[in-house]
Design a protein around this nucleic acid. Structure first.
Length: 884
DNA sequence: CACCTAGCTA
DNA sequence: ACGTAGCTAGGTGC
């Protein structure tokens, strides 16, 4: 290329966009350094360089906020949110990376990066270069000429619009020179520069066209009719101010030679060192290729390309499937959605090839070939397999056995990540963009199939990368022995669903609804008028202003009206309104729960929840749509809802069976802490809380009162959550001193528990993560935070995670054993639900005894602890009756 | 549509 | 500031 091409970048603006485009949870190092802005910036930079092929590159940054614009207008950029903590520090890292790449970083005291860039753009253009200016600031549009093109980020991250004079003209109907005038009239919210109210791009462009430029518009302001004209006249000063401030200065006195920006000065070792430190794995050789010397210009490695999927007819598809290597991983992807609907497209991929087919177009041979691969290939790789397993089963195929699920694998590696989206994973781990290419205008019949195919295409390579990382973290066993088998069981449970008696649901809606209405009427009567009892805001007005009750605990938006606070207020004031309000809250909550259930009863008369396997950072499952893990149980009224869940008699089931672990978390604590006293308590087989209370209060078990027992029970459970003396005192409504005394005695008697809890936090602080009995990790970088609140939260999480997580592991193992046991015995009874320490089985007629034996044996033997794993089993005609 | 408050579970 | 892990509903204000 004979012509010089100068790429200029607004560092702050692009880093900031990267920061908000990429979730910080997904981009941090194992030591807790946030890297999303750095990653996004580097990614954008590489993409821009690969697309634009610049010969020269420079990046400008702002220096603080003090600029000539702020001096002129004190409100300039006021109202902007404070720079988030995670963003600070990343700018420095970006500058380090640029330094290592040999890219000049420019700043100018008192000016903004845009002024620096405007100056560089002018100089570059004068030197005969083509200038490309990447910035998120629209003011730069004024710089666009036939030699200067603005690259402005679109919605995504690496997608940049090329704003040439023609593009600006098309979008805003003004020339680049007049863009300033348009911006001055319309205003710029991000800079806190209000424009003329009621005037947008259209009106502003019309005026500028009529009067030539902004001074022209202002000269003729008196002639402009209507509301807009009036508005212009009364905001003339604002417009003039905006026009002064949005002019970019292109004549700064900068020490810069174009030659210093020539690409090629990369310090490869330093870059690789920095990327290691930042834990970036996906950029590979791209930096070398973009910034390296001309000699190192090699084609981009084939490995960084997404395979181009082929959409095949049945016969070709069958042939391709028949020729698969049985030893190499096969990616499988379909478009079954979260509900497990039947998929339309399926795609498979191996090596560099990906093919897709429309399921309903497959002939018998095609179906057989697919069934053979799904049933027989030992290395099937999915991303979020569960909905797809369900979809394939619904479509009539057998439930495939999954060799690796990239989402589960990523979850084990980073269990607190917000999402495990395949597009992001492919970009992050492989540097491959699988997003849909821009359609070329033609009707794209293979579009959906190709999209599914592109996703399948990255799976084998992603699997390889994830296997390595799992092995390194010793997590392969957790994936293979716990998560994947559990996923298969969950798919069956979700497909099964649980039957409900629809008529009873409707009755309960009426009952709880009537109770809520009655309580509401009584509340209104006490108050003398109606308020929205569901509105905390209106209640605050009533309680604290109108009725003058004492203020409760502060919330972000006022004072709390939660049940605890209302009960306190009732104790103080005995105002009957409060009692009715509390009763209303109870009834309306129950009604909402029942209405929610009613809405999700499927055509088969059953409720099919979805278990989420990659949400809870401790390893627990969660349940949604509906959540069947929070069905009421503590009150009689609540338990009536449980009675609605029943076995489906017409299908041959005559009972529900519930099996739960007794005090599993306390048992795990005893085991992990190796506390002889606590282990002895469990082995003695007497009531745990009574035994512990006897120890704490120096009493014989027979002398332990109900009050002593419940205090100790609260403390035992609280310990697992990191409860403080303060928290205990609040919960038990006793003094802090008394609570402290209780805890001290507890720890005297169970010293190993104290040592364990302390030690587990310190160990986690040292290595950055906690581990369950099976090696499941949870990273807690904030254990070393300077901010006390964050640090202490992380400490409580560190203390809880091994206990809650080990319990979750054991329950998952138990579910797999139970499912295996039921199927091996060829019983029709089946697992339906899991509620953390409890499972619900739908029992087929005549199978109750065998099912009970399987539950007791398999759950009890799921783990070998130094204390017994006690399992309670109950059976009944509904969920409530099955509980004991 | 995002956030908050409230309340249910283990 | 002060107990872990979740999901859902309705109200409120942008």
């Amino acid at each position: 290329m004979s012509e010089n091409r100068l790429l200029l970048i607004d560092g702050h603006s692009l880093a900031y966009r990267a920061f908000y485009a990429l979730p910080v949870e997904n981009f941090s190092t194992s030591t807790g350094q946030a890297t999303n802005a750095v990653y996004g910036f580097v990614s954008m930079l590489l993409k821009a360089c690969e697309t634009e092929q610049p010969t020269h590159l420079a990046v400008a940054f702002d220096l603080g906020r003090q600029t000539f614009r702020l001096e002129e207008y004190g409100e300039y950029k006021a109202g902007r949110a404070k720079t988030p903590e995670e963003f600070r520090g990343q700018v420095e890292l970006i500058q380090d990376v640029l330094g290592a790449m040999g890219v000049p970083v420019l700043t100018a005291e008192g000016f903004e990066a845009d002024d620096v860039l405007a100056t560089l753009a002018r100089r570059g253009a004068e030197a005969g270069a083509q200038v490309l200016l990447a910035t998120g600031d629209k003011d730069s549009f004024q710089l666009s000429t036939d030699r200067v093109t603005i690259l402005y980020p679109k919605r995504g991250l690496s997608d940049l619009s090329r704003m040439t004079p023609a593009a600006i003209e098309e979008k805003y109907a003004v020339s680049p020179a007049n863009y300033r005038g348009l911006a001055a009239l319309v205003g710029e919210k991000a800079d806190n520069l209000p424009g003329v109210p009621g005037v947008g791009d259209k009106t502003a462009a019309k005026w500028l066209a009529s009067y030539g430029d902004l001074p022209g518009v202002l000269d003729h302001a008196d002639e402009i009719k209507g509301k807009a004209g009036e508005s212009l006249r009364s905001h003339r000063a604002d417009v003039e101010r905006n026009y002064r401030l949005n002019r970019l200065l292109d004549d700064l006195d900068l020490d810069f030679e174009l030659d210093s920006a020539r690409l090629g000065g990369v310090d490869a070792e330093r870059v690789s060192e920095l990327f290691d430190q930042l834990e970036f794995r996906a950029f590979g050789s791209r930096v070398q290729e973009v910034f390296g010397s001309a000699a190192s210009q090699e084609p981009v490695a084939a490995a960084a390309q997404a395979p181009q999927p082929r959409v095949l007819e049945s016969a070709e598809f069958a042939a391709w499937l028949g020729a698969l290597d049985t030893a190499a991983p096969v990616g499988v992807e379909s478009d079954a959605d979260a509900t497990g609907s039947e998929p339309e497209w399926i795609a498979l991929a191996q090596g560099e090839e990906a093919v897709a087919a429309r399921l309903r177009d497959l002939d018998e041979a095609g179906v057989d070939a697919l069934d053979a691969v799904l049933a027989g290939h030992g290395r099937l790789v999915f991303n979020d397999a569960k909905p797809q397993l369900k979809g394939l089963v619904r479509a009539g195929y057998g439930q495939p056995r999954v060799w690796l699920d990239t989402e589960l694998a990523e979850y084990l590696l980073v269990p607190d990540q917000r999402s495990y989206d395949l597009t992001e994973a492919a970009e992050r781990s492989l540097g491959i963009d699988i997003a849909a290419p821009v359609p070329e205008g033609e009707l794209d019949l293979g579009g959906a199939g190709e999209a599914v195919g592109r996703r399948a295409g990255v799976l084998p390579r992603l699997a390889a990368a994830l296997r390595e990382r799992l092995d390194a973290a010793h997590l392969t066993g957790v994936l293979e022995d716990i998560e994947l088998p559990t996923q298969a069981v969950l798919a069956r449970m979700e497909l099964a669903g649980i039957a409900v008696e629809g008529t009873r649901l409707t009755e309960l809606v009426g009952l709880f609804g009537a109770q809520a209405d009655a309580s509401a009427q009584e509340a209104y009567r006490e108050l003398g008028r109606e308020v929205n009892l569901g509105s905390p805001k209106q209640l605050q007005g009533v309680l604290f202003d109108e009725l003058g009750m004492p203020k409760t605990k502060r919330t972000k938006t006022g004072y709390t009206t939660d049940a605890d606070a209302l009960a306190d207020l009732f104790a103080k004031t005995e105002h009957p309104f409060l009692a009715h309000l509390l009763a209303y809250r109870d009834s309306i909550k129950l009604k909402q729960t029942v209405v929610g259930l009613e809405k999700v009863v499927a055509d088969d008369g059953r409720i099919h929840t979805t278990y989420l396997q990659t949400v809870a950072a401790t390893g627990r499952l969660s349940s949604k749509d509906p959540n069947l893990q929070n069905i009421p149980v503590r009150t009689d009224a609540g338990r009536r809802i449980r009675s609605v869940f029943v076995p489906e008699e017409a299908a041959g089931y005559d009972a529900l069976m519930s099996a739960d672990y007794s005090q599993i978390e306390m048992r795990i604590l005893a085991h992990l802490a190796g506390d002889e006293a606590l282990v002895a308590a469990f082995n003695a087989g007497e009531d745990l809380h009574t035994f512990v209370a006897g120890q704490v209060f120096h009493a014989q078990p027979a002398e332990v009162t109900g009050e002593m027992r419940s205090k100790v029970k609260a403390m035992s459970y609280g310990l697992v959550y990191g409860l403080s003396a303060f928290g205990l005192s609040k919960q038990l409504r006793i003094g802090v001193d008394e609570a402290k005394g209780l805890m001290d005695t507890y720890f005297e008697r169970f010293g190993a528990v104290r040592d364990y809890l302390y030690g587990v936090v310190e160990e986690a602080r040292g290595r950055g993560y906690t581990e369950t009995m099976y090696g499941r990790r949870r990273y807690l970088p904030q254990l070393t935070s300077d901010r006390r609140q964050l640090r202490e939260m992380a400490e409580r999480a560190a203390l809880n995670a091994p206990i809650q997580g080990s319990a979750a592991d054991i329950m998952k193992l138990a579910m797999c054993r139970v499912d295996d046991g039921l199927r091996a015995a060829e019983l029709s009874s089946r697992l339906l639900l899991q509620v953390h320490d409890e499972v619900i089985v739908e029992v087929a007629r005549g199978e109750a005894d065998r099912v009970e034996a399987i539950l007791k044996d398999q759950m009890g033997a799921a783990a070998q602890l130094s204390v017994p794993l006690d399992v309670n089993v109950g059976t009944g005609p509904d969920w409530q009756a099955a509980a004991h």
